[in-house]
Design a protein around this nucleic acid. Sequence first.
DNA 1: TTAGTTATTCGTATTTTTACGAATAACTAA
DNA 2: TTAGTTATTCGTAAAAATACGAATAACTAA
Lengths: 96, 96
Amino acid sequence: MKPYTEKDEKLAQYAKAMGHPVRIFILQFLDTQCSCFAGDISEQLPIAKSTVSQHLTALKEAGLIQGTITPPTIKYCINKSNWEEAKELFKVFFNV
Amino acid sequence: MKPYTEKDEKLAQYAKAMGHPVRIFILQFLDTQCSCFAGDISEQLPIAKSTVSQHLTALKEAGLIQGTITPPTIKYCINKSNWEEAKELFKVFFNV
DNA sequence: TTAGTTATTCGTATTTTTACGAATAACTAA
DNA sequence: TTAGTTATTCGTAAAAATACGAATAACTAA
């Protein structure tokens, strides 16, 4: 039925998560900061905190980031293994 | 105001275009077929032709593919230069 | 001109995304 | 307990994405 593979779906999922400039920014920010709080991210962006939260949730659900609760804050960082998987999928896709 | 760059927006745009398994399939199909008609693509997919058309339009607007009219068909193929640009943007993003 | 082919556009419906501010949850410290 | 901090969730609204079938456009060939 479906002509596309699991890998195609996974790649599409990662691509979709990256399909918004705010989320690209967050990913790059986390990549350089290693880890930081939602507030640190939020104060870099000209949008409401609740909207940032939604973007963080989207990235979390796609598997690209993860959050560790350290009350009253939440420390966010890149999900290394999934990040590597995404990198590999894009690599193969672009024949790199 | 905007903390993200033109490149971030471009990357997000390409990622968004890739954010659906059908569009991933189409891109891969065109990458191997070099060029083909909308009908060739459509018959590989279990969705309506009009929906395929919409996906083709999305890919065209993102710049990843281009169509050449050869009545009564339209020959689609990868937009090489933009494809290379996308590849490069993802490459830099993932520190490859 | 008329019929046939291909592909898009139109009209429509449903779902998802994006965004905001207010309200809430969870924890700490006074 | 009460106030203060952080971040999410809730409620809501507007816009965009996804999907379908019918209608249309554009061209060719008989």
